[in-house]
């Protein structure tokens, strides 16, 4: 399979990456090389195989329902580029 520019643009928007025109061409070429490489997987018969998401941990461990975290608003905010009223600040979001 091979990616056209339109698709690369759509994927970039989904990933919130902006590709300038001069980067578009080389990126498209790189992505297609990688996809071509990945396409080898089609040689493998997986009709009777189940997908595998992770290894070595058959089931999820539980946590007790106790409040033992949070309560450190300063630490939450100390690395933020913009803060007001103890909140993160972003350009206005329109709903």
């Amino acid at each position: 399979m091979s990616l056209d520019q339109e698709t690369v643009k759509r994927i970039a928007t989904l990933a919130r990456l902006k590709l300038s025109d001069d980067r578009m061409g080389p990126m498209q070429q790189d992505l297609n090389r990688i996809l071509h490489f990945i396409d080898q997987l089609n040689e493998v018969d997986t009709s009777s195989v189940e997908g595998m998401a992770g290894v070595n941990t058959p089931s999820m461990p539980f946590r007790k329902d106790v409040v033992n975290d949070g309560g450190y608003v300063d630490k939450i905010l100390e690395n933020a580029p913009e803060v007001a009223c103890n909140m993160f600040v972003v350009p206005k979001v329109v709903e």
């Binding site: 698709t7 690369v8 919130r16 990456l17 902006k18 990126m27 790189d30 990688i34 996809l35």
Partner: peptide, 19 residues
């Protein structure tokens, strides 16, 4: 994200998003 991530990271994000 376009300025903060380098080219290889952006490539992989795009491939990952696509698949």
């Amino acid at each position: 994200r376009s300025e903060g991530f380098g080219a290889e990271v952006q490539r992989r994000i795009l491939i990952g998003t696509y698949v």
